[in-house]
């Protein structure tokens, strides 16, 4: 194993924070953002109709349902905000960010996880409460679940780094925010 490249976490055979690892996730988030924005615009009645190739009138039924309007903002727009936040957190930071800025990596991980879980919950709600399916909602859910796996390796590298910081009795707080004084001491 090569020790010359300090971008690879110790005990790993690759760096989970390279652009090759991160950009596909950002791409998925942008695709999700496009779908959710489109659905949100329909919910705001800016777009008059919604694309639904398989389930007839079901998409409209779901997108205008009570659950979709529990909150002051339509649920698809909240999803769009989630995707935008995921894409942003995926872009910020260089290829050593798992140790130079653990806060963004961990924020990225905890945003991708719940967004996916909420999507799955909404997939369950569609047939159980409304006896209907919405193709684009399902597509969005698949995207957000697919994003979880590849986002987690980077978070694992950051959490292991913070564990080494703790073992070395350095400040977890400073390491989390990427203070240079801690970075110099811990690999």
């Amino acid at each position: 194993m090569s020790h010359t490249n300090d971008a690879i976490p110790p005990g790993w055979n690759y760096n989970p924070a390279t652009w090759g690892e991160r950009l596909p996730i950002v791409g998925l988030a942008l695709l999700g953002l496009a779908i959710a924005t489109y659905l949100g615009l329909f919910q705001l009645k800016i777009v008059p109709t919604v694309w639904e190739p398989f389930f007839g009138n079901d998409s409209k039924k779901i997108l205008t349902s009570g659950v979709s309007q529990i909150l002051p903002i339509p649920d698809a727009l909240l999803g769009a905000l989630g995707y935008a936040a995921d894409a942003t957190a995926g872009i910020i930071g260089g290829t050593r960010r798992w140790r130079t800025m653990p806060w963004i990596v961990i924020l990225f991980g905890v945003m991708v996880g719940p967004l996916g879980m909420i999507s799955v919950l909404l997939v369950v709600v569609q047939p159980v409460l409304y006896d209907a399916w919405c193709t684009l909602c399902l597509a969005s859910a698949v995207i957000s679940v697919v994003m979880i796996g590849p986002a987690m390796d980077e978070m694992l590298a950051s959490l292991q780094y913070l564990k080494r910081v703790k073992e070395a009795n350095e400040s977890l707080w400073k390491a989390f925010w990427g203070y240079k004084e801690v970075q110099g001491k811990i690999i």
Binding site: G11, A157, K163
Partner: peptide, 18 residues
Amino acid sequence: GTYGGGWSAIWKKDSLHA
């Protein structure tokens, strides 16, 4: 791939990454 000892390495001592 190797993952520095995996998820349990976050709470266990002396795992691969350490």
